[in-house]
Amino acid sequence: MKSLIGAVLLLTAYLLSSIAQAHHSFRGVFDFSKHTTLHGAVVKFDLLNPHARVFMELVNENGETEQWVVEAPGKLSLARRGWTDDMFGDREVITATGNPSSTGKMAIWLESIVLSDGTEFIDPLVSDDDVIEVERRARAQQAAEKSSN
């Protein structure tokens, strides 16, 4: 039988990761409490289902070339947000921010990508939250006005 403390810890961990991302299946693979930023060249892009991957090459502070992967929701989610198979130029230099691998591997889960021309693509769930916050404020204002009448 699971101990009460264990159950509480599991529930807390579940809720924390639910707060970060509603439907990711990679809670044991990426650490959603941390953030890493990469700056380097795109060498390959797979806009696929179930998951997309941006392969990057960058130079670390020791002058060594590193190969990183930015993992992302699949084409189902990204295509309707403007992602296309040819969105990156040949070895285009981008800035990618995301949640790092929980096992020290060179991979992050997408939070945002900024192209060389400054165009930013944000994790769809994060950008939706910004829109919903506007709705929330309007509803709360309406409720407050109704209550004062």
Binding site: F26, V29, D46, P50, H51, E71, S101, K105, M106
Partner: peptide
């Protein structure tokens, strides 16, 4: 509806 490719297991 786009096809599904073989799922590549995320980097461990």
């Amino acid at each position: 509806i786009y096809p599904y490719e073989s799922c590549i297991i995320p980097t461990k």
